[in-house]
Each structure stands twice: as C-alpha cells, then as structure tokens.
Amino acid sequence: MTVGLRLALGQAPAALSGTAARLAWLDSILPDVADRADLLLLPELFACGYNISDAIVTRAETVDGPTAQAVAARARQYRTAIHYGFAETAPEGLFNAALCFGPDGMQLSHQRKLAIPPGFERGYFEAGQGCHLFDFHGLKIATLICYDAEFPETARHVTGLGAQLVLVPTALGSDWGWVANRMIPTRAYENGVYLAYANSAGTESGMQFLGCSVIASPDGQEAARAGADPEILFADIDPARVHVAQARLPYLTDRARLKF
C-alpha cells in the first residue's frame, strides 16, 4: 500500500460565474494537476460560488447531483481524487458541504459544515453534525469547512479520531488575514498534523477574497503558501512527520494529565 501522497491545492478565481464556468476552470488545471498530485483540494462552495445570495438555493444540488457526477467523472478520467465544496440540498435542509471523489470516481467523503458563522450563511444553511474521516494513500483524512477550523476543539477532535491530514475548503475575506496567516499554521502545530486551507482569490459580487491559501506542516511550518491571485500549490504529505511531531510535542496525551 502506498503511504503518503502528493497534495494539490487549487486557489480558484472567485469571479467564475456559475457551475459550468467553474467546471471549465477545473478542466483547465486538471491535466497538470493529475501529472503531479494524487488529490486536489478546492475551496468552499467551489461548485456554485460563495457570495451569490439567493442563487445559493437555485444552484444547490443533492450529493449525487449533476455536478457531483461531473466531478466524479473527471476524477476517474484523470485518476486523481478531487475534494470540493458545494451547496447541498437534502430533506433535512440546505447545507454548506464538501465531497471527495477518489481516482476510481467513487465517493470517499461527504462532510457538512458544523458551525455556521455570522453573516449571510445563517440565512441559508443548517448546521451539520459529526466529523467523518476517510482513508486514502495510507492516510487518515478529515474535512473541516472554513469557520469550523477556527475552533481549537474541532481540529483537536478530528486529530483524536486519528486524522493525519485535515482538509479545509474556505471562503475567507480579505479582512481576515490573521486567520490564514497565523491561526491555521497554529492549528497544524498544536495537533501535529498537516492542515491544507484552500481559499478563493479575487472578487465575487463585491466580496474581496484574501487568497493566501496554505498547506501547513505538522511542525507549523508552511509547506506551500499562495499569494492573492489564483494559484495551484503542491506539497508532499508524509505521515512519518505526523508521528515525529506528535512524539516531540505530545499535547494529545499530556492534556489528560491536566488538572483544573
């Protein structure tokens, strides 16, 4: 069994209008990504767009909807796993969600956003429940969506479940630089895991995105960092580095000794 993987992170243009344009952009990067990576991480609500008001409802799809089928077909065609955000419609309501399809086109993961932040999202989305890990290339992988990763408890929870890599599709505005530049590498460091944070770039309906996507290593260092423009990042994910980091700083075990 192959252990470890080559991760690609797609910092997509926020201004892509509609699902067809977003799939076309995906088509433009996949040949190069497929040659260089095992898994591609895309931003929050990549499939439909983020700052699109009521179009969130009309562009929402089921987990087996046409966009999911289109992404699965591309994953199978290019033999590369694809992880992306979308608006999910379900009998229980509307959710900010993410799906991952493996290189065989089969679904590897489905995660709903746990914490709905202040702002327009609370007018549309229900909160999801539970964290779901999946196995790929000998790694245990978790998904946290944007605001979810800003809580120390969520990253600690999925690490406790065994996650070695945490994928975070996000839609971070330009006025939240501290989150991408300081908080996210800290989450990786304090848990001894890889954390990949995929943002959009540019402007969508008046909202300026920060960009600054990052793949943070278990020691808190940046394996790859984007600027403000659309970009594709690559980094090797080595589970041995997770073991080394967690042994060097055993926060996960030593916390049980704390007495308050």
Score class of each variant (00 low, 15 high):
L172K: 12
S109H: 13
R156T: 15
H157P: 06
D148Y: 06
I141G: 00
A163G: 04
S200A: 14
L144G: 00
N199F: 10
F120G: 05
R182H: 15
G160I: 03
Q107V: 02
Q164W: 05
S109V: 02
G119L: 01
V168F: 03
A171C: 09
K113P: 07
G105T: 02
G105H: 08
L114I: 14
D175S: 14
S109L: 09
W176N: 14
Q129D: 10
S200T: 12
L167P: 04
G177R: 11
A115S: 13
G162N: 06
G177N: 01
G192V: 07
W176K: 15
H157W: 14
A149Q: 06
M106F: 13
L165H: 00
A201Q: 01
V158Q: 01
P152M: 05
H110C: 12
H110F: 15
F120P: 13
G202K: 02
A155C: 12
V166R: 03
L108G: 01
W176I: 11
E153I: 12
S200V: 12
G119N: 01
G105D: 04
A196W: 11
D104L: 06
P117S: 04
I141L: 05
W178Y: 15
V158S: 01
G105E: 01
Y124W: 08
G160C: 01
R187G: 07
L195I: 13
K140G: 00
L108T: 04
E121H: 08
V179I: 15
A188V: 08
R187E: 15
P103T: 03
Y189I: 04
K140I: 07
E121Q: 10
F125Y: 14
N191K: 10
P118M: 10
T170C: 14
N199D: 08
I141H: 04
V158D: 02
T186P: 09
G162P: 03
V168D: 05
E150P: 01
T159K: 08
T154P: 00
M183Q: 14
S174I: 13
E190N: 12
Y124H: 12
Q164M: 08
D148F: 07
H137C: 14
L172W: 06
P118T: 06
F120N: 09
D175Q: 14
L108R: 11
L144R: 02
C146E: 01
G162W: 06
E153H: 14
T143P: 02
W176Y: 15
A155M: 11
A149P: 02
S200E: 13
K140E: 11
G162H: 03
M106I: 13
A180R: 10
L133C: 00
N191M: 08
F120L: 15
F136S: 00
T159N: 06
T170E: 10
L144T: 01
D148M: 04
H132M: 08
A188M: 09
L167N: 04
F151I: 04
H157Q: 14
Y194P: 11
Y197D: 00
R187K: 15
L108Q: 06
Y147F: 14
Q129L: 09
G173H: 07
F120K: 09
H132I: 06
Q107F: 00
G173L: 12
E126F: 11
A188I: 07
A198L: 07
P152A: 06
Q111I: 08
A196T: 01
I145N: 03
T154L: 13
P152D: 09
A155L: 12
G160Y: 00
C131V: 14
L108E: 00
Y189F: 15
S174E: 12
R112M: 04
G192N: 07
P152T: 05
D135Y: 13
G177K: 10
H137T: 00
R156K: 11
